[in-house]
Amino acid sequence: MNNRAVLFLLPVIVIMSLSAFIPLITVVNYSLHYIFSGSMPQYVGLANYVEVLRDPEFHDALTRQLVFSTMVLAVEIPLGIMIALALPRKGIWASISLVLLGIPLLIPYNVVGIVWRLFTQSDIGVIPKILGFFGYAYNVALDPIDAPLTIFILDVWHWTPLVVLLCYAGLQSIPDAYYQAAQIDGASTWKTFRYVTLPKLRSVLILGVLLRFMDSFKIYSEPLLLTGGGPGSSTTFFSLFVSRKAESYELGYAGSVSMIYLFIVIVFSFVFFQIMTNIGKGGQTK
């Protein structure tokens, strides 16, 4: 049996080694060296990590990213659940809603950036016009609060449909009998949601939270196109920060930041996954 499993997993393992493992080892290697273009890399142990952890720029980028990711989860997950609950369950409108929800997900990231640039650009956009009407001088390019807030709203706009689709899938798998039973027991809407719907959505919500958390760390093209990371560094999120360092060929530094990045995301995901799985086990035995 075991041999067969290995055989079946072989393509996955070969491709993943090529496109994941080898590059990862290279990155680890970078993080342990001082690298300047034109000269031989010099082994420096953990010196890069020390430099990164002491760098106020890194602290800023990390704080900004964590605030952003927390906000993304806090808004997109509840909103996604609510919209999924409101969607029609059957019939033509259900298919139409699904297709419509899928569309924002299929817009290339940089086109999302362009859409929002057209939308928020101070000379041609809709948002500045509307807010200007109410007397608020909105400017995505120059205002250090408008800029990150716009990126945040963009992300909610772009990615809530994914959470909706996942939750919708979860809702579809709950048999009607459960709701009928809850109704007979005289459960309130909230109680039905809390004790029937929510536990059944657990596995899709785990996936939703994990995907949104991981991917919120990856936000790159949108701030790059919309604000270029500015004004100042107010929209330089983590990926943009790393790639700026990599582009300026500070590979040792960028490598260390990447390893720290990966560490944070994996630890969060692992802990979250464990906690949620245990809660699930507790709930099922009841």
């Binding site: 996955v12 080898i22 760390f217 943009l240 790393v242 790639s243 990599a246 960028a254 990966l262």
Partner: peptide, 26 residues
């Protein structure tokens, strides 16, 4: 098998940005 499964998933978390240089070299 569990570890392998989780390892697979961690790749999805990887920062695309830093993989550029190793990818290019590879």
């Amino acid at each position: 098998s569990h570890h392998l499964f989780f390892w697979l998933l961690t790749n999805r978390m990887a920062p695309g940005a830093i993989f550029i240089v190793p990818f290019t070299e590879l």
